[in-house]
Simulated scan of single mutants.
Amino acid sequence: MKRPSPRDRSADRQALVRWFAGPLGAALLAAEQARLDATLGSLSGYHAVQLGDLGEADLLRRCIAPHRVVVEPDSAGGAGRGGLLAVPERLPLAGDSVGVTLLPHTLEFCDAPHEVLREAYRVLIPEGHLVLVGFNPWGLWGARHLLRRREAPWSGRFLSPQRVKDWLALLGFRVELTEHLFYRPPINSPVLLKRMGVMERLGGRWWPPLSAVYLLVARKRVIPLTPIRPRWRARRGLVPGGLAEPTTRANREEP
Rank of each mutant, 00 (worst) to 15 (best):
A234N: 13
G197F: 01
M196Y: 07
A218E: 05
L202T: 01
P209H: 07
P227T: 09
W206L: 07
R233A: 14
K220N: 02
V198P: 06
P208L: 04
T226K: 15
V222G: 01
S211W: 02
L210K: 03
L210V: 04
W207C: 01
L202C: 04
N188D: 15
P190I: 12
L202M: 03
G204N: 01
L225F: 12
P208W: 05
L225S: 13
M196K: 04
I223M: 07
L192V: 13
L193R: 11
R233Y: 12
V191L: 15
W232H: 15
K194S: 14
S189R: 12
G204L: 00
L192K: 11
P208C: 04
K220H: 02
I228S: 14
S189I: 14
P208H: 04
P209S: 07
S189G: 12
R219G: 05
L225M: 14
T226P: 14
R233G: 11
R195A: 13
L216H: 09
I187G: 09
A234K: 12
R221V: 06
V198C: 10
L225R: 14
V213Y: 09
L192I: 13
V222Q: 06
V222F: 04
W207L: 02
P190M: 10
L193I: 11
V198H: 08
L225I: 12
V213H: 08
K220L: 02
K194P: 11
L202Q: 02
I223K: 06
L202N: 01
R221N: 08
W232F: 14
G204W: 00
W206Q: 02
M196G: 09
V217L: 10
W206K: 03
L225P: 09
V217W: 09
K194V: 12
R221C: 09
V198Q: 04
W232V: 15
A218M: 06
I223A: 07
M199S: 00
A212P: 07
R235H: 12
R205F: 05
P209D: 04
R235V: 11
P208G: 03
I228H: 11
L202P: 02
R229M: 15
R195E: 10
L216F: 09
S211Y: 03
V217T: 10
V198F: 10
I223T: 10
L192G: 09
P227S: 06
S211F: 00
S211Q: 04
L215M: 06
L215Y: 09
P230T: 11
P230D: 11
M196E: 04
P230I: 13
N188V: 11
P227Q: 06
R205L: 08
R235L: 12
V198K: 03
P208V: 05
E200M: 02
I187Y: 09
N188K: 13
N188R: 15
P190C: 12
I228E: 15
R231K: 14
V191K: 14
W207V: 01
